[in-house]
Each structure stands twice: as structure tokens, then as C-alpha cells.
Design a protein around this nucleic acid. Sequence first.
DNA 1: TCCTTATTGTGAGCTTCTCAAAATAAGTGC
DNA 2: GCACTTATTTTGAGAAGCTCACAATAAGGA
Lengths: 145, 145
Amino acid sequence: MEPSTEHAHWAESLRAHGRRVTKQRIAVLDAVERHPHSSADSILATTREALPDMTAQSVYVVLGDLTELGLLRRFEPPHSPALYETRVGDNHHHAVCSQCGRVEDVDCAVGHAPCLTPSDNHGMTIMIADVTYVGVCTECAARAS
Amino acid sequence: MEPSTEHAHWAESLRAHGRRVTKQRIAVLDAVERHPHSSADSILATTREALPDMTAQSVYVVLGDLTELGLLRRFEPPHSPALYETRVGDNHHHAVCSQCGRVEDVDCAVGHAPCLTPSDNHGMTIMIADVTYVGVCTECAARAS
DNA sequence: TCCTTATTGTGAGCTTCTCAAAATAAGTGC
DNA sequence: GCACTTATTTTGAGAAGCTCACAATAAGGA
């Protein structure tokens, strides 16, 4: 993959974290950016449009590494494989439709990072508040009636 | 398993939901009650203390059914199998130690079921707010220093 | 262009959980 | 208490999602 303009910003991020810029990493970051809330499986499918020889293992390795670096965020809706997104650093939440699995981003409910302050944390130092709303989306509600 | 007094309350709940009272169901409910936040695997181990022939499949079937009935609550901490508890109906939250996996219950932070009201729900009808705090517990913090 | 080593690919395998069908036992009526 | 119906459990196989070890490849510096 030649250094095209649209991916330059990811290349910089990777170098800033001491990572080599590979076509696999760029493909994964690009896939997640274009299709937020996607699973390893669908990320593999997307990357293969540009990189037919991409392997599932590479996707898992890259996703794990980039998530640890903070370039990607991972979350696990109930009864579903892990999903990834490029929107990081704002500790936003997710609403998941229990019928169709559709996922929407939800801004923090009570202002700035209030979810990081539980009433009684049992002495734990809280780093992340993972909030997932589960409900029924408008389409599924309409179909049910 | 003879109808001992201590399990009578579970037997009633099962009958109230039109379920037969079996020693496997009682064993699962008892195991989860005595060890909250336990996985299917450890529930199997606990039930086998009383029922050596208990099978993993029965545990999964029973857990799935009782969760659907509302007698048990299921939640999935990141990077961990599903955990079960008998404390249901109050939509409380969980704090998980990212080092040792320890889980603590956390009451709702902002009063009564505030978490059911996201700022923008994209038209979804929210049923559950699944909140998981991830942090480091006191023991793990002490060990690290 | 060569070299070092980070990164990816190959192949096996693990954990968690699910499905189909046969065996068992709870609850009902006699 | 005994037989009968069918819910429930067990047996056995297997899928999904993810991880590990090690060989092959390629990014970035000399």
C-alpha cells in the first residue's frame, strides 16, 4: 500500500507509538474507521477488499495491539463478539438493540465522565466505566407491532 | 435431593414460573446464591459437591432458562466468561479488577435507575443499563507498589 | 542494497457455549 | 403407590471466537 494521503494520519499515529507502518495495520484502522462497531470477522472481510491475503490472525493481533495502544476501543455487547471503533478517549457509551444487534453511540448521560464515580467503589481505583444500554430500536419495535 | 427447608424458597420460585423442581435447578440456584459472580464452570464445580454426576450442559441449559425467567442475572465482564448472580431486579452495577478479576457489587450511582435514561437514545426503548466499572482493587494496587 | 528484527502468516488448539437426539425423572391422574 | 406424559437432563458432537508457537516476510535504518 503506497503512502496515500487519506491514510497518512494513521501512519503518523503508528509511528508516534513506535510501530511500523504496515499495510495490514492501515487496512484495519481504515476498516474500523469506515465501519464503526464492527467485529474482528467483519473487519477481516473489509480489509480483504484491499488486501485479499489478509489473515484472521493478523486482524486479531493488530486489533489487540492497537487497542492496547489506545488507537482503538473495544467493547463486548452481551451475547456478541467484541466490537471495535476508532472513537477513543471520550468514554462514551453504547446502545444495543437486543433484537437486531444494531449499535449506536451515546454521549455520557450526566456530563463529563460522571460514570467514573460510582457511589461505593470498594476501594478500587476505577479506570473505565463501561456502559451498555440494551433495548429495542425503532425499526424492531415497528416490526413487532 | 429431599425437600430440605433451606431450598424451599427456590422450589416455590420455580413452581411459580411453571418449572419442575429438579435437584439440578436447586443445585445451580444454591451454588449461585452461595458464590455470587461465578462462571458456568465454577457453578458446575460447586454443584458437583452435592451432585457428582452434574453435567456442564445441564448447567448451561439451567442458567439460560433461569436467566430468561429473571431468577438469575447474567453479566459479561470484558475478557471473561459470563458470570451469574441471584441479586436481580435492582439493576445494580459491577466493579471488576482488571488484574485479578475480582468482582464487587456497586449500587446505582445517581439514585433510582438513572442509568436507564441516556442523554440521546436514538429512539431506542432502553430496557437495561449494563454498567461495568473496570479498575484495580486495593490488594492488586498494594502488590504493585 | 543489505541487515536486523518487528510483523505477519501458518497451523494447531483452547475455551466457552450450542445443538440434536436418546435417557431419565417430576408431576399428574388413577 | 403405580403408571403415564412430557419436561428435563444427559450424551455426544461441534461451532464461534480467540490464542499460542514458530516459520516466513517485510519495514526501516545503516
